[in-house]
Design a protein around this nucleic acid. Sequence first.
DNA 1: GTCTATACAACGATAGAC
DNA 2: GTCTATCGTTGTATAGAC
Lengths: 206, 206
Amino acid sequence: MGIVAAADENTAPRRRGRRPGGADTRTSLLDAARAVFAERGYDGATVRVIAERAGVDPAMVNHWFGGKEPLFVAALNLPADPATILGEAVSGDPDELAERILCRLLEVWDSTGGAQFAALLQSIATQDVAAALLREFIARVLVGKVLREVAPDRPELRATLCGTQMFGLAFVRYVLKVEPLASADHATIVSAVAPNLQRYLTGPLP
Amino acid sequence: MGIVAAADENTAPRRRGRRPGGADTRTSLLDAARAVFAERGYDGATVRVIAERAGVDPAMVNHWFGGKEPLFVAALNLPADPATILGEAVSGDPDELAERILCRLLEVWDSTGGAQFAALLQSIATQDVAAALLREFIARVLVGKVLREVAPDRPELRATLCGTQMFGLAFVRYVLKVEPLASADHATIVSAVAPNLQRYLTGPLP
DNA sequence: GTCTATACAACGATAGAC
DNA sequence: GTCTATCGTTGTATAGAC
């Protein structure tokens, strides 16, 4: 035995180099990340603690995911990375930001048929973990990536309001599948929802 | 014997009067209603079929619930009956309809702390039944009770859009509990969300 | 005895077949 | 247009619990 040393201090030096085999470092990291992010939130969860829980070296986070934040969105396991979608959308006319966001989201969601979204919802309902992760996503990605650059006025409130509209839209269209929204084309949805989303982004707030 | 002629031809007449005991007709009806409503939708589910599945007389639907529609909302087992909430809200200035709806909804939801809402969501995610029921709710109660009287223009689309905003708000506030929305007071939420909801109700649509 | 959950029959409305 | 089937609902008599 004795192949892998414990992670703490007073142990024999860890083996270097590639692990024997089978041990899926990436998956272990993802599992550990989901647990730790959920327990302590994004800021409270350190890469070191996550790596320790996974039984691997902290450097593996960078090797497999490219950093703490990419690990976080990977742990969310959302259909397509929202951070990049939102990141791309911010460039351009701020008055049409909602329109661009909705177009991209609909494309991505439609491509998976909403199946992944339903799965995400199920895990949210059953475990607290996924709920905590999604909460962190709204609080961090939405606020940090989009709202800060666009609306310095109450970005947190704006972000959560945007979250209600985006999540509700996805839920009613892809999980509940209520007509006529479920089979409405993108143009209809965008022109119907974008003005409301835009108001949350940059419009007047009480 | 020989009191009543058999209803059909060759069947012994069912026993009349109070059942021996323990047999909970009300619960049986609710279970049967959930199943049949989910299988065939509101219109497709007949009172007779539901009663048959429950093993009781169709008149029991009226006796216990007062009709088919009250049975339906009882089967939904939502936190507070939305049909009455929405029914009360429609009377008054149509331009402040969203405001009235949101105020009432927040009161009701806050009183239960969102616990029932989380439970509902869980059953939606796991079973198809609850999802079908909620879909029927949006399609029927929302459209029939509110939108038809307020916006003759595309009431179905308006109803589903309203559904996205209301459901998303409830989910982010009560299940996800994202700040600052989770602990925002009613006035803030109403003044933030009501204009958007009002646009879905009576505003211009593409 | 009273009270009430139950079963049965029948009514008006409505939709579809012919 | 008429006929029929079926729907939701209502009225009423009955049997068991109390």
